[in-house]
């Protein structure tokens, strides 16, 4: 445990007060104009206000006597992201031709596709020759990584999408068409998978291997589903 000097407390308190004053000013600007960039910049300032507080708490509880900046890194990264998102909203408001050419759903599908490919390629590369008990922690790790990538990625995609009003729109006929076609392609993969699993059962392959092959076909089916959607978004749903 480290002791904190009074100068550090005063410095952090002044910084937090300055940031909060900025947040109040930005809220006032938002109430006056109802422009989204002020909300995003207000969020960024709140993150910047929190960063040194968390850093201070981490340092106070640390056993090492060297100062640490790691405590506030997440807040600083989030603040930079929110600042950039605010700048993007302002730039789109001033020049509407800079609005996103791809819908949020299209970007979201691309993120899911890439994350599925990377995470499960890694999972099968690491676990293909392992025994069942050794594979379970890798599988759980892969699912956790997939969920984290998708949560963080979707937050980043949402704040960088312009205009942000479009995020509330439901799927339209093009989205539904792309979804239908993606699912149709995935159905063929799953059908092939079922026949292969039946074949493996006939040859009395171990239960765990059958489960792993079934899971593999489910993953490939999802990849084909999202790849199919992307194809139809890019090259046409006619």
């Amino acid at each position: 445990m480290n002791s904190i000097s009074i100068v550090a407390y005063v410095g952090v308190a002044s910084w937090v007060l300055a940031c909060l004053a900025g947040v109040v000013r930005l809220i006032w600007m938002w109430l006056k104009t109802r422009q989204m960039e002020y909300v995003l910049w207000g969020g960024a300032l709140l993150m910047l206000a929190m960063a040194p507080c968390i850093s201070l708490v981490v340092y106070a509880n640390s056993t090492s006597d060297s100062p640490t900046w790691m405590g506030g890194v997440v807040q600083i990264v989030a603040a930079v992201l929110l600042m950039l998102a605010g700048l993007r909203q302002r730039s789109v408001r001033k020049s509407p031709e800079k609005m996103s050419q791809s819908s949020f759903r299209e970007k979201s599908d691309l993120l899911v596709l890439l994350s599925l490919c990377c995470v499960f390629l890694g999972y099968y590369a690491l676990s293909w020759n392992l025994s069942a008990p050794a594979m379970v922690p890798i599988l759980v790790g892969a699912v956790v990584v997939l969920v984290v990538i998708n949560i963080v990625g979707h937050i980043a995609l949402a704040v960088m999408h312009a205009p942000m009003d479009e995020l509330n729109d439901g799927p339209d006929e093009r989205d539904l068409g792309a979804r239908r076609r993606g699912l149709r392609h995935a159905y063929y993969v799953l059908a092939v998978g079922i026949w292969i699993i039946l074949g493996l059962a006939v040859f009395q392959v171990s239960q765990w291997s059958i489960a792993n092959v079934a899971f593999g076909f489910m993953v490939i089916g999802e990849i084909v589903n999202y790849a199919g959607r992307m194809y139809h978004y890019r090259y046409g749903v006619t």
Partner: peptide, 21 residues
């Protein structure tokens, strides 16, 4: 009642709208 991106795709010939649209 569609998204802006659907209108873009329609104009670029990448999407054929439903009869309703």
């Amino acid at each position: 009642g569609v998204s802006r991106q659907t209108v873009i795709a329609m104009e670029q010939g990448r999407f054929c709208p439903s009869l309703e649209s």
